[in-house]
Write a protein that binds this DNA or RNA. Sequence first.
DNA 1: TGCTATATTGTTACTAGTAACGTAGAGAAT
DNA 2: ATTCTCTACGTTACTAGTAACAATATAGCA
Lengths: 342, 342
Amino acid sequence: MPTIYDVAKRAGVSAMTVSRVINGKKDVKPETREKVLKAIEELGYVPNSLARSFVLQKTKTIGLVITDITNPFFTTLARGVEDTAMKNQFSVIFCNTDEDPEKEVLYLELLARKRVDGVILASASGKRTPLKSILLRNIPVVLIDREVDGLGDLDIVKGDSIYGAYLLTKHLIDLGHKRIGIIVGSKNISTAEDRVEGYKKALIESGITIDEELIRFAKYSREDGYRVTKELLNLENPPTAIFGGNNFIAVGAMMAIRDCGLRVPEDIALVSFDDIESLSQVYPFFTVVTQPAYSMGVIAAELLIRRIEDKDRVRERRRVILQPELIIRESAGEKLKEEVVG
Amino acid sequence: MPTIYDVAKRAGVSAMTVSRVINGKKDVKPETREKVLKAIEELGYVPNSLARSFVLQKTKTIGLVITDITNPFFTTLARGVEDTAMKNQFSVIFCNTDEDPEKEVLYLELLARKRVDGVILASASGKRTPLKSILLRNIPVVLIDREVDGLGDLDIVKGDSIYGAYLLTKHLIDLGHKRIGIIVGSKNISTAEDRVEGYKKALIESGITIDEELIRFAKYSREDGYRVTKELLNLENPPTAIFGGNNFIAVGAMMAIRDCGLRVPEDIALVSFDDIESLSQVYPFFTVVTQPAYSMGVIAAELLIRRIEDKDRVRERRRVILQPELIIRESAGEKLKEEVVG
DNA sequence: TGCTATATTGTTACTAGTAACGTAGAGAAT
DNA sequence: ATTCTCTACGTTACTAGTAACAATATAGCA
């Protein structure tokens, strides 16, 4: 494990000169450069970026905290972050919180210890406290997908959940549905609240009374999608349509509906917020509202890297709200016959 | 950004004592510990693991080099690695090579610079050279999913591609297919070669002549799945069944078949190596051979961490071959009528 | 020839921790 | 009283690089 000093000795120069060669600085005579390069080659020297980060006080690393890399939405988003980071010579440490605020604290603490240059966070808690050690250290943060209470001053990249949910609900209403169940993530997550807000807006606009019984805050997971859908189906007056608050919930709902011996869309309509690409390519079935996940990742990474590399930290905060898109496929079915309504 | 010295000064002790407190070493009087803890709290001190890694010569970080986190197989595998790493206080740096050997070199070089404690590699090149700087430095490596030429002495965790491909091909043969097209990854990737080997074995065993025209090495991607499937369909004597070498290829094949106005399985059978969980849960359509991706990740991470933490590096190499499972669903269809055969 | 400007290279100090060793003091054993 | 042992803590040196400054060489020019 040769160091820069071993290279220096072999090339007959000082460590500083080797450092200059490695970092492509000018002020090195071409023939000296050659000698150094030769010594590096011969020794199989690989620079120690640990030592480098240590003295430069920057790690060229960002932390990406999401809830579950297994969710296609976050997978795609993560890919956008990684590609952009790599393009800028940054590497990425991934953290899966599984919607667990305690894991969030743990990971953010870890990232602070690792002295990452910046953090991209899809918060599981919606709270500002887990960010304490990050913010204290003035490490730039870009929020993604979800707001965090009391951090309105941070950069954020997210989809317009209110509008997306409005679109999706409106579509169901247009098909004749009046009892629409909605299942979203837990209450402190901004997307959950926003999607319910958009849902309510569409209902109110159409003069449909809101039945709180049909609005369920759970967890963005297949398990909760399954469980809560069963609850909804077992209601005395069950919904004729279900709005899955994200793709996992929609998949869970689908399984619950099937297990109850019902068909989608013949017996019940089902729509989803967020698409599942690998599914829709093979089987374009789910009517969804989809968000540009890859772009979200790219934009977040770009914003973050710009902040990191900026000397002046005083520039205004940026909020990027990306528009969702309604894709009508089969799972919401045809227009209901009048008899069904009411 | 307080350091351990700031804490020491505030607590009226030496830096070493603070270090002992942080690392939970004994030999610290309880009341001294309290003083130190109080100082840490008051200053908002967060240990610098960069400095720590630097002196300890270990980073508690592993590199995971895969081809594409977007592929559900690798997503699940990655989750297994990450969970296991976290459980052992390791973090993971993800690298997507996109089946590009040049990116592989770049990333492995990066990981060497970062002085990761170990590497898990699903090689895109199948070659040993990209690993040069890693191996030179005696950084432990566990291969995953794919062999690398000339590295038979490294730990490896992989599925039994030969057997899996045999199962899948045998299934098609049992249904009466004799002209089976197979599309796999590029030739230097061991899974591609193994899957073709299993395919051939099944054909030979059933006395079916091998037609090299039906065997295609491409890239494990949707694009190549699409492109090569079209080639196969345009053959003078096209196959009656297609074996997608991985899930991406199968999805691409599906789209190509549909674009040609054909139906699966009525007009042509289609099977896939590797499942797509989110798809199969909603739409159990593809007949597949599936590998335990999560377990693969877990086992690889465990093997690696064991090597990293082991003092004696002399123990024998371990090869873990996991058995694949055939899941028969719809995409291979029913038994062909005799008239079709020959 | 001597002086100055410029190019190239070296020296020193610093980054934030920890290992290894050293030492003081209290109580126990002789 | 002296020596021993143990606990609790401090000191020193080291990890691999780089910034800032210092020094030297070289060339141009009067």
